[in-house]
């Protein structure tokens, strides 16, 4: 077996914390970029709608 019995929880939870933080580092930028893309898309749609009726584009 890998780690000895009484040390196992400490070792495994250490590696667990490491994995969780690394996963967060990987996911946080993805989530942020998705939100940003959505924001820009909404802005583009607003602009397009505004252009259709001949108003100047709103800037949010």
């Amino acid at each position: 077996m890998i780690p000895e019995l009484n040390y196992a929880p400490f070792v495994w939870s250490s590696y667990g914390v490491f994995a969780a933080v690394c996963a967060w580092q990987f996911l946080a930028p993805l989530i942020r970029r998705r939100r940003l893309t959505r924001q820009i898309r909404e802005q583009l749609e607003e602009e397009r709608a505004a252009a259709a009726v001949g108003r100047p584009a709103p800037r949010s």
């Binding site: 890998i2 040390y7 400490f10 070792v11 490491f18």
Partner: peptide, 21 residues
């Protein structure tokens, strides 16, 4: 770190935390 490295002489398996710490 978890499967190949031997346990530390004094600290046994808890020394495996070293490889990420």
């Amino acid at each position: 770190a978890l499967y190949v490295a031997p346990p530390d002489y004094q600290q046994s398996d808890s020394a495996r935390i070293l490889y990420i710490h």
